[in-house]
Simulated assay, not measured.
Amino acid sequence: MNAIKLHPLKKLEIILAGEHKQFATDLLSRAGVKGYTIVGNLSGKGNHGMYEGHLMFNEDDALIMIIAVVPKDLADALLDGFQPFFDAHSGVIFVSDIQVCRPTKFVAAYPYEMARSQS
């Protein structure tokens, strides 16, 4: 039986106001992120109490989460790139260590990038 080979990467979960979606996706694209998922109309509780997603009319007023999977060195660069934004705006980035079975879906120059990110 063949075991699935897993490769370590970082998952970024970027939560910010929908009005800033273009800024965030532009930054990700310029950094070379191959893809991401956007989840809209988030609800939850934070420092300012409950936040309800807006299901109609204005997506810019709702919170969104952008999920991206990248090598460690790119995650570090993206965090540096987002820092000035989060100094001036609300939101948060969660960073998790993950493993994926199809690294070519997330890393442009695999295996070179993977070898470089593991050194």
Rank of each mutant, 00 (worst) to 15 (best):
D87Y: 00
D87F: 01
Q22V: 09
L78V: 03
M50P: 05
N58A: 11
G32L: 03
S43Q: 03
I93K: 10
I93W: 06
I67Q: 08
A75V: 06
S29Y: 09
L78T: 02
C101P: 04
G46F: 01
E52Y: 11
I67S: 07
L74T: 06
A3E: 15
P111K: 00
V100E: 00
G32H: 03
I15Y: 08
G53Y: 02
L9G: 10
K10D: 06
L6H: 11
D61C: 09
L12K: 05
E52C: 08
D87I: 00
G44A: 04
D80R: 13
S119Q: 11
R102Y: 03
G91Q: 08
D60S: 14
D76W: 00
C101K: 10
A109L: 06
S43P: 02
A109H: 12
N2T: 12
A88N: 15
K105W: 04
F57V: 14
G53S: 03
Q118E: 13
E52K: 10
N58Q: 10
V69T: 11
I15T: 15
F23N: 14
M114A: 13
K21E: 14
T104I: 10
M65F: 05
N2A: 13
D76Y: 01
C101L: 10
G18C: 00
M50K: 13
I38E: 12
G49C: 03
D80G: 10
R102Q: 09
A68Y: 00
Y51R: 11
L16M: 05
Q99E: 14
L27A: 07
K105C: 07
E13Q: 13
S29H: 13
L12D: 12
A108H: 10
Q22S: 09
K105Q: 14
V39K: 02
Y36D: 04
E52P: 06
F23Y: 15
L63P: 08
L9E: 04
H20D: 15
Y112S: 07
G49Y: 00
V95F: 02
E113D: 14
V95G: 05
L55K: 11
D26R: 08
L74F: 03
N2G: 09
F106M: 00
K21D: 06
F86G: 06
V33S: 01
Y51G: 12
I14P: 01
G91A: 10
A31S: 15
D26S: 14
Q99P: 00
T104W: 05
G49D: 02
S90C: 09
A68I: 00
S117C: 12
R116E: 11
V33R: 01
